[in-house]
């Protein structure tokens, strides 16, 4: 497959409603990813993915374990390059992770050596001050402002001021993810990428976090790409659900098996859930639910 040229960006099929092209934030073009295994064999993971993400969308990506959800997210991040095809963010090819795309992984989402407040101010600090300029008086003045902003984010995420001085391992899993979201949002990224960010949380905490992220998304107008293997979570949170699944032989890679806009009415959730479940090609997608 020939990697798409810039010229066909505008002419690419629009998946859902026709909306102005400027709304386009992320575009995946004919993405193929395969890994070379130790025995020399080639393992296809993603096999021809085309996906457009528009500003303001909340896209849930769902699929069986091992179907390449995290790989897809890493491609959008720029932490990994596709074997074929390309990823565009705002029309420019993504080659490495940068401050435009925030990241909240499932594990290791915070810097263990920094306190909560330092974790949140890390981004603004490091962006404005290099290793050398951090020792100037201006740095200390700006740091006060960074901290004030960090405290605002912290409160918004439902944490207390007294948590600011704690280290990540002194926080519960839910609180850690709250801090991680604050840490990413403080950079005002164009898109927030979350990889099973709530999967390690207990059900009660998880529900709370789902409410929180939905609220944050609405208030800040960010775009969210949310990877999960929980169908209910995907449908309740997303404005759109993308299902990744293999369409045949076990050796083939995953394709977009379903790409649905989720209506606001909760009555239709059950029907959508059925379609999603069917599309994943597995009646029991999730072992834990």
């Amino acid at each position: 497959m020939v990697p798409g040229s810039l010229a066909d960006t505008g002419a690419a099929p629009v998946l859902l409603d026709a909306e102005p092209a400027t709304d386009l934030l992320i575009r995946l073009e004919k993405i193929h990813v395969s890994y070379e295994l130790a025995d020399g064999a080639c393992k296809k993971v993603l096999d021809g993915i085309d996906l457009d993400i528009r500003r303001g969308e909340f896209v849930s990506v769902i699929g069986r374990t091992g179907c390449g959800k995290s790989t897809l997210l890493r491609l959008v991040l720029g932490a990994e390059r596709p074997t074929e095809g390309r990823v565009l963010a705002d029309g420019r090819e993504v080659v490495r992770p940068d401050r435009d795309r925030g990241y909240v992984p499932q594990k290791y989402s915070l810097f263990p050596d920094k306190t909560v407040i330092d974790n949140i101010t890390f981004g603004p600090e490091v962006e404005e001050f290099s290793l050398l300029t951090r020792f100037t008086p201006l740095f200390y003045r700006r740091r006060k402002e960074f901290r004030a902003e960090a405290m605002r984010q912290l409160r918004r995420m439902g944490l207390h001021g007294s948590d600011a001085k704690k280290y990540p391992d002194q926080l519960s899993g839910g609180m850690q993810q709250r801090v991680a979201i604050a840490q990413a949002l403080v950079m005002k990224p164009k898109i927030l990428l979350m990889d099973e960010a709530f999967s390690a949380l207990d059900p009660g905490t998880r529900t709370g976090m789902q409410k929180l992220i939905r609220q944050v998304w609405r208030e800040t107008n960010t775009t969210v790409l949310f990877v999960t293997h929980n169908i209910a979570e995907a449908i309740q949170l997303g404005t759109r659900v993308v299902v990744l699944a293999k369409d045949g032989a076990e050796s083939s890679g995953s394709k977009v098996a379903l790409d649905l806009r989720v209506p606001d009415r909760a009555e239709e959730f059950a029907e959508i859930a059925e379609r999603v479940e069917a599309a994943t090609g597995h009646s029991h997608l999730d072992e834990e639910e």
């Binding site: 992770p97 992984p105 962006e127 950079m187």
Partner: peptide, 12 residues
């Protein structure tokens, strides 16, 4: 994840 996280926060 930590390295990627660093980059997404604007670190060089």
């Amino acid at each position: 994840e930590q390295v990627v996280k660093g980059f997404t926060l604007g670190a060089r």
